[in-house]
Computed example of a mutant assay.
Amino acid sequence: MNSRFRRILAVSAAAALATSLVACSGSSDAGGDASEPSEGPTAITVATYPVMSNAAVYIGVEEGIFADNGLDVTLETITSGPDSVPTLLSGDLTFTSIDVPTLINATKEDVGLVAVGAMMVGVDVDRGYVGVVAAPDKGIEDWADLEGKKVGVNALGSTPVALISASMEAVGADPSTVQWVQIAQPETIPALQAGQLDAANLAQPLLTAAEEAGFEQVGNPEQLTVGGVPTFLYVTTREYAEKNPEVVAAFQESLNASGEIANGDHELAIETAKKSTTVDPAVLDKVTGLPMWGSKPLTTEDLQKFIDVLVNAGQLDESDASIADQMIWNG
């Protein structure tokens, strides 16, 4: 992993750990303990953000899939996965979702998180759920053209940074020359229009909105890197998983069933997104590139594929290449 990427992730995990220690000072039971016998369903709280990628879990709740597996789900809106980690560690959340690089760093820092399922899987097409866009007059037509440019991403040290860097490496370009700019997704298109960014990574439906505003897609950073590989994961604390393996198993089964429905019924996914996001329904109707939601049990091999991409692109030290076994719950 390059030094900048390492510093960003290390600071993020250290801050999360410090916050969680304060939050947990009065309790050692992170995430609660659902192992006691109960006549009714088990209450869990799942973090979501109001974007299309969370449609599957909303479908699962609305279709009664979680309830059928004995779970009473409360969906808690958050701003981002990494920001929710302290809340998870304090016990106020049962499950949240983070990207693979964040979990790698949390595992290295021994924060106590384990992956229990795949939220999203990389899409192996040139026009997917995510994409890098640029103005036509910027002369950015492929990954190599990003050298020396200002590129907007939702978070430094995140999956977009890793995958764009790996995509550039794949065509012989040098990602260390990129000026990464952290910017919230809703602010990205105005920043592109103002010339504050040369290019930016966007997810649907903002990707479609950017193209309608005249920007052109450079490529899908998942295509050359993690097509078919889990990119965002649902996690809980290791302590909670050890105390409540049956709840975790029910959550995993519900997730996979929900993802299968979402992947097979894009119209339902769009209609669900209209209710679960703040996006203009008219924009959602124009979206063609949808996420690939997780619908199979998560494996160590899945995580290893992502790790190998990071190592090969110089985004992760080879000494950390065998960390996958520590990242996943195998209870």
Rank of each mutant, 00 (worst) to 15 (best):
A191H: 07
G172R: 14
N201Y: 09
D124F: 00
V132M: 03
A199M: 06
P160D: 11
V171T: 13
G122I: 01
T188H: 01
D198Y: 03
V151W: 12
I140F: 06
V123K: 12
V123M: 01
A203M: 07
P186F: 04
M168A: 05
P160S: 04
D137V: 04
L146M: 14
T159Q: 15
A184C: 00
M168D: 07
E212K: 12
V161F: 02
G152Q: 04
G139S: 10
D126H: 13
E169L: 00
I164G: 01
A210P: 01
L163S: 09
G152W: 02
L197D: 09
K138T: 12
Y129L: 04
L192C: 05
Q193K: 14
L163R: 12
I140P: 08
G195S: 09
E187N: 14
Q193F: 01
S158T: 06
L163K: 09
P136A: 12
L202V: 03
V130H: 00
V151Q: 11
A134C: 06
V171S: 07
S158L: 11
A210C: 00
S167H: 06
L192G: 03
W143I: 10
L163A: 08
P190Y: 15
G157T: 07
E212M: 06
S176N: 13
I189T: 03
D145K: 05
S165W: 10
P190R: 14
S158G: 15
L197T: 01
S165Y: 03
K149S: 02
P190E: 09
E211Y: 00
D126M: 03
V123T: 11
A191L: 12
A166H: 07
V171N: 05
A173T: 14
E169H: 12
Y129E: 11
A162D: 14
A155Q: 15
N201Q: 10
D124H: 13
T159K: 10
V121D: 07
G131H: 07
L156N: 13
A155S: 14
P205A: 06
V114C: 06
K149W: 04
L146V: 12
W143K: 10
W180K: 08
M168S: 05
D124A: 15
L197H: 05
A213T: 02
A213H: 05
T177K: 13
I140Q: 04
W143Y: 06
